[in-house]
Design a binder for these strands. Sequence first.
DNA 1: GCGACAG
DNA 2: ATCTTGTCGC
Length: 219
Amino acid sequence: MPALPTTAEEAVALQRALRHQVEVSPGPTNPRTVAGLDVAYADGSDRVAAAVVVLDAGNLLPVQQATATGLATFPYVPGLFAFRELPTLLEALAQLTVTPDVLVCDGQGLAHPERFGLACHVGLETGLPTIGVAKTLFIGEYEEPGDQRGDWSPLTDGGEVIGRVLRTRAGVKPVFVSVGHRFDLDSATELTLALTPRYRLPETTRAADQLSRLALRAG
DNA sequence: GCGACAG
DNA sequence: ATCTTGTCGC
């Protein structure tokens, strides 16, 4: 079983082999640190920059950060984009000298055709609790949630609940929350709200997004 | 067959 | 994802 699949067929086979290892359980009770992950892409080349920013879960201030740059070998294919971001993302994570209590990924977790989105993959690779907070819908159906912060509605696929559509700010487009690894939807929802005191997206995602763009220009 | 499709 | 700063409005 290759660690780095080359074709789409191999990639899907790997997802199907790994998905059964995902653990759905309550997230950490009192996480002290929460890390955000993101990847920025260059326009012309395949150069990518990954960033991870660890925040203090209490005051949301940065504790540590790391970046890594590389070349995206795998092409962008909906459902397989973890294979594009994962290698560089793991390089950045490896540079941390602190182990975050939770990882927040920019993309889906179980809300994925194979029930194995980026957040699940990152969770299994690191063994850490992870959730996915995506800006847009990938798969599933939902009713528009209420327009107050904290309002949510289930995201379902074929009758199965795969995530939640969560309003993090009143009157602003909702985000798509799903379990990555060692988390459940209640904990994931609670965490996402704790990370969005001011903006639609989690502070973790915003910090990682900014840093990844800087890293792309720098190196 | 046609359209949709995380980043 | 990326091309793109300041600016209008609640």
